[in-house]
Design a binder for these strands. Structure first.
Lengths: 344, 344
DNA sequence: GTGAAAGCGCTAACAC
DNA sequence: GTGTTAGCGCTTTCAC
């Protein structure tokens, strides 16, 4: 029985420590440490006795104490994103996890739900646990509060969006170019009246993609009617009203560009109950896009690659690389499937 | 400048400690501790000086050291599942995260990729970090290695599958009943020759669901031809061969039951290139199932509820509840959408 | 109100 | 080969 049983609360059973193992095996503390850490300089007989005691007591080294003493890295990284359940982010997470694992690091995850206060709390909690680094999909708020952590050696990388108030490595999608390519594709099919539906423009990616649409239209010298643009959360009511406006009136659109996959899906659902069949290109791919009655043409992002790159950048910094701060743009890929190639 | 700068490695900048703050503010260590932890008994003037020093140095309390000294819980839980990128698990994760958050706990996540060695390594790493509890989607391997951790007060809950070699709270889907309901639904449409495609039966859920199919068929006194059952990883080739067998010969099936959503999707893709249109019910819902050319009837699981229940059970144990070990079965829900109601 | 000293579980440094 | 000591950054205890 560990000798510190009474010091712990009633509910938390005492865990055996190296001291307990040493006592049980009749050896010194350092010998146990040597055996646990596979260091040389212990006779096989002694080592066997120690292993026996470890087994018997169910001892497991307390890495918290080890880390504290060593003052070294904690071999853990924190990942903060908008919503772990969103397919885009869950793919990104998985990629981050794989890279972290390959570097021997554990992964702490948290969803900010687009709430700056929650994001901040998560980030600071992670830092208090002394994660080696932080990979963040930042909300729009200022991130100056992380400056002391950065100065103290916590690596930070932002992904999907740039972070404001902090200069760190960043991995983005080529949002403007991607949307412009999608819109250009529609234009090449003969469309001139093209509507755009995107997310709340306070979100960096939403604003960038909208800008890509405007650029592509301006490039051809096409005017954009006010009723052709609708920005906001991808909710059924908003989408319905927006499509009402876009598809009726004197200048109805003949094609639609959607700014993200939630919007694309909401638009498809709404279109199902209408007679019109506008051409459609979605930004960001989604499962079964190719199986729908009219397979959906998309501008695909690569969330796994983004996660991998972000994690690689992080570990590069942790390895001590002092290279200039990087800003990577991952290219998109146009995937024609049918909805974007509908005749005018 | 912190006074322990030289003791740290070159790459890792020294972080200011309470000692540094105390020196900077010209107060004792304990006074800093009081201010940091919001304890009473510090004059406002002193507190202000301390806060100033904290701000200036960019001090952040090291929770690792705090936890070590307190010997209390670490306010962190570990989640081990098959693949974070799988929608089923990412929804489950998000629910676990929300519950953990509401209890003030951080979440460590890891994907086992169905590899027992990897799962074991993750679990033990988490335990070495002294997580308060572990939520596991266990592989088939024996989990006796967790017994010492359980004895030492680490709470363990298994979810989606039962764990072998350990008696812990478990949250499962009503696999047999769910599949039986789906098959019964097909039978009520007049089908008698119903095929079943499921995952590798070494996986608990795959075996249970197959049993549910057999039960439902036996209940009606219907024989099952050997060619009607195909179990294995949901890969295109295997699915193709299986459907070849099921849809031809003297006793072709008129309906299909699919054991999980990966299989359902693979089957739908394969059927797209065939003339036959068997009725189909899938186990586990998936996004856009309702938007496909023939909307897909499914037996829906509730991954978020499963995650929430598992986490609640975990925190209940951590609160010290000594109730008997529980085994919860979350009911499924039949969602008729068309594919399961096709005429014979 | 304030602070000095001890110690959480471990490892580093240096005995023997 | 093995053990002893000090100390990581913090909280606890107890003295002033």
């Amino acid at each position: 029985m560990p000798d510190n049983a009474e010091q712990r609360g009633f509910e938390i059973p005492a865990r055996p420590t190296m001291k307990d193992v040493a006592a049980a095996a009749g050896v010194g503390l350092k010998t146990v440490s040597r055996v646990v850490n596979g260091e040389s300089g212990v006779s096989e007989a002694t080592a066997a006795r120690v292993r026996g005691a470890i087994e018997e007591l169910g001892f497991r080294r307390n890495d918290g104490a080890r880390l504290l003493r060593q003052g070294s890295r904690t071999s853990s990284v924190g990942l903060i994103l908008e919503d772990l359940a969103d397919p885009f982010y869950s793919q990104l997470s998985r990629a981050v996890e794989d890279v972290a694992r390959s570097h021997g690091s554990l992964l702490l995850t948290g969803s900010s739900a687009e709430d700056p206060a929650r994001e901040r709390e998560l980030a600071l909690d992670f830092c208090a646990r002394r994660v080696d680094g932080l990979i963040v999909v930042p909300t729009a708020a200022d991130h100056g509060f992380l400056a002391p952590e950065l100065a103290a050696g916590t690596a930070v990388v932002s992904v999907d969006r740039p972070v404001t108030g902090l200069t760190v490595d960043t991995v983005l999608t080529a949002n403007r170019r991607g949307v412009a390519e999608g819109v250009g594709h529609l234009i090449r099919q003969g469309h001139r009246r093209i509507g755009y539906l995107g997310d709340n423009p306070a979100i960096f990616t939403a604003a960038e993609r909208l800008a890509g649409y405007r650029q592509a239209m301006a490039h051809e010298g096409y005017e954009i009617a006010v009723s052709w643009v609708a920005m906001g959360k991808p909710e059924p009511v908003g989408i319905h009203l927006a499509l009402d406006r876009m598809l009726s009136g004197p200048d109805p659109v003949t094609a639609l560009m959607c700014g993200n996959n939630r919007t694309t899906v909401a638009v498809l659902r709404n279109l199902a109950s209408r007679p019109e069949r506008p051409a459609l290109v979605g930004f960001d791919d989604f499962e079964l896009a190719d199986m729908l009655p009219v397979p959906v043409t998309v501008v695909a992002q690569d969330p796994a690659l983004m996660g991998r790159m972000a994690a690689e950048l992080l570990f590069r910094r942790l390895r001590g690389e002092r290279a200039q701060v990087q800003r990577l743009e991952i290219p998109t890929r146009l995937v024609p499937r049918g909805s974007g190639e509908l005749p005018l």
